[in-house]
């Protein structure tokens, strides 16, 4: 028995599994997964796939500003989707912007996931007043739209930080704001699953070994409540990307020098009625494509991993 045989066996098991079957038999999901994969790969290898580097201010030429897309009379192949007011190629800006949006979304989801899972575990495991306090805070926060919370935290952080650091830390301010606005989703789910797992006898058996409750939570309960968390994380990724775009569109997100998709929308919005529609529309389409694709994959995961629907 070599590891190779084992790997091949487990690979075969994955392909043969119910989950993979439900994936294969849903063309929409397969399409969404392919689109997501292409967008993510494009974002990761942005310097290789784009004709220009939109962050390189020296390479920009203001003479190229407001170039229309290639199918217009004065469009050029070097700026396929046209340029914005500073002569940045829209295509390159979109790819780089998507890279930023995905990065912000992923880190924000990770951040809120860690907070939410930790608080949910503690609430579910300890119970009593600890549980009541954590869950009431989560519920109060859920009564406000996530974007409002993100906006609030964003404002507070910008107020606390010294002015010269704001530009530098802008990305992290956005990540923290979006991250904090998303934790209740995880906390509620994890708490519910933790309470279920807690009543299972393998947790009792662990208690009987006298190990510390924190160890029981991390080593026994956590691996068994992570399934739904991954599903929420996928759906939350789409929400985080939208929230980032919203913050950037409102001008409190990613700065114009390194535009994200939301920042591009804001820049383009200024020129929408003067005929330069491509500055807004293409980033908007890209954003919609990304969010819809990620959401469809997330929806499929939610259904596929829900034993009640199988």
């Amino acid at each position: 028995m070599s590891t190779l045989v084992r790997t091949r066996e487990s690979l075969y098991r994955i392909i043969d599994s119910d989950i993979f079957y439900s994936f294969r038999s849903s063309p929409v999901t397969v399409g969404a997964a392919i689109v997501t994969l292409i967008l993510v790969l494009g974002a990761i290898f942005a310097p290789l796939v784009t004709p220009h580097d939109p962050y390189d201010l020296e390479a920009l030429n203001l003479m190229d500003a407001f170039n229309p897309p290639v199918w217009y009379e004065d469009g050029t192949w070097s700026f396929m989707l046209g340029t914005d007011d500073q002569g940045r190629g829209i295509l390159s800006a979109i790819v780089y912007g998507m890279r930023l949006s995905l990065w912000v979304g992923l880190v924000a989801v990770l951040f809120s996931g860690v907070i939410g899972v930790a608080l949910g575990l503690v609430a579910g495991y300890v119970g009593g007043n600890t549980d009541a306090v954590i869950m009431r805070v989560a519920e109060v926060q859920l009564t406000f739209p996530a974007i409002l919370i993100a906006l609030l935290i964003d404002g507070v952080l910008r107020g606390i930080l010294p002015p010269f650091m704001i530009e530098e830390l802008a990305i992290w301010v956005v990540i923290v704001s979006i991250g904090i606005s998303g934790w209740p989703q995880y906390a509620r789910t994890v708490r519910a699953s933790t309470i279920v797992e807690n009543n299972k006898e393998y947790v009792h058996a662990a208690v009987l070994t006298g190990i510390h409750p924190a160890m029981i939570m991390i080593r026994h309960v956590l691996p068994n409540v992570m399934g739904p968390v991954l599903v929420i994380a996928t759906i939350q990724l789409a929400i985080a990307i939208i929230n980032e775009a919203t913050l950037s569109f409102l001008g409190v997100g990613i700065p114009v020098t390194e535009p994200s998709l939301g920042t591009l929308l804001r820049v383009g919005n200024n020129f929408l009625f003067s005929g330069e529609w491509w500055i807004t529309v293409f980033p908007g389409v890209a954003l919609a494509l990304l969010v819809i694709a990620v959401n469809l994959v997330g929806d499929w995961m939610r259904d596929a991993f829900n034993p009640k629907l199988r």
Binding site: K200, E201, Y202, H204, A205, A206, L208, H220, P223, N224
Partner: peptide, 13 residues
């Protein structure tokens, strides 16, 4: 202790 439910008493992971 030996538990009642052999399906719940062993950590599946």
């Amino acid at each position: 202790m030996i538990f009642q439910d052999p399906y719940a008493s062993l950590n599946p992971r």
